[in-house]
Amino acid sequence: MPKVDRRIAKSQEAIKKAVLELMSEKNFDDITIQDISDRANVSRGTIYLHYLDKYDLLDKLIAEHINEMRVICESTSELEFIDANLPWFEYLESNHLFFSTMLASKGAPSFRSQFREFLVDEFKDEIDITKGKNNGLNKDIILQFIVTSYVGIVEWWITNGMPYPPQIMAEQVGILLERNL
């Protein structure tokens, strides 16, 4: 892994944090590169050094989080749903600003669709319609039910200020997944 200059990493983190803070205050379409630059305390040139424009910045930020979630899934793929969910909810909690902004913002519908696509990829192989409680049901319908439920529970948890700790969420969502898959 190439070594990244700490100043570059610090600037990129400030830029990402700035865009998220601004998105929590106003519509993404109304945010300018100058707004981001002012909030992050970096020059506009620094932003353009790393990103083509604000859309590229948002796309890269979303891709970064989707990739992190994919890594979590890969590292927990052999675990039962309850145990596999805990790192997820801990990640969601530790990145609250990102997820609360993406789920609440009208400017980030691409996040919701990418999140759904990611979950479809993760859950599609978990569904068995050849035996048990899902025997004879349509796999696409079950998949959409599970994905929509998962997105909904994550959105509810984040937008309501995470009223239950990650451990409780992991346990209860894990039990619900086991009942339905």
Results as ranks from 00 to 15, higher is better:
D56Q: 02
D35I: 01
L49P: 00
A18W: 02
Y91G: 01
V42A: 10
N41C: 03
T76C: 04
Q12N: 09
Y91F: 14
D38N: 15
K60L: 08
K16T: 01
D59M: 03
K10I: 00
D30S: 13
F81H: 14
D59I: 01
A14M: 07
K10V: 00
S43L: 07
C73P: 00
A63D: 15
E78Q: 15
E90F: 00
D38M: 12
L58G: 07
E21V: 07
E25Y: 02
M23N: 14
F81E: 14
K17W: 04
L103F: 12
A104T: 09
T101W: 07
L22F: 01
I33C: 02
S105H: 10
N27H: 15
K17H: 13
S94V: 00
A40T: 10
M102C: 12
I47M: 01
I66K: 09
E74A: 12
S100I: 11
L22Y: 05
Y55R: 14
N27C: 07
V19F: 04
A14S: 15
A104H: 10
F98N: 11
S100E: 15
E13P: 02
L57K: 03
E74W: 05
R44G: 11
V71H: 06
K106S: 13
S100Q: 15
E21Y: 04
Y48M: 02
E25M: 07
Y51L: 02
E21R: 11
N27S: 15
A14T: 07
D59Y: 07
D53M: 03
S105T: 10
D30E: 15
S11D: 13
S11E: 14
K54Q: 10
F81K: 12
E74K: 13
K106W: 06
R39C: 09
L97M: 12
L103E: 06
L58C: 07
I82L: 01
K16W: 03
E93I: 00
E13Q: 15
V71N: 10
S24R: 15
F28N: 03
E80K: 08
W88F: 07
T76L: 01
A14C: 04
S105D: 09
A84I: 01
F89A: 06
E64Y: 11
Y51G: 03
E21F: 00
V19Y: 04
P87L: 11
D30H: 12
S43C: 04
F99R: 04
E93Q: 14
S77R: 14
E13W: 09
N85Y: 01
D59C: 00
R39L: 04
H65A: 04
E68D: 14
L86P: 04
V71T: 12
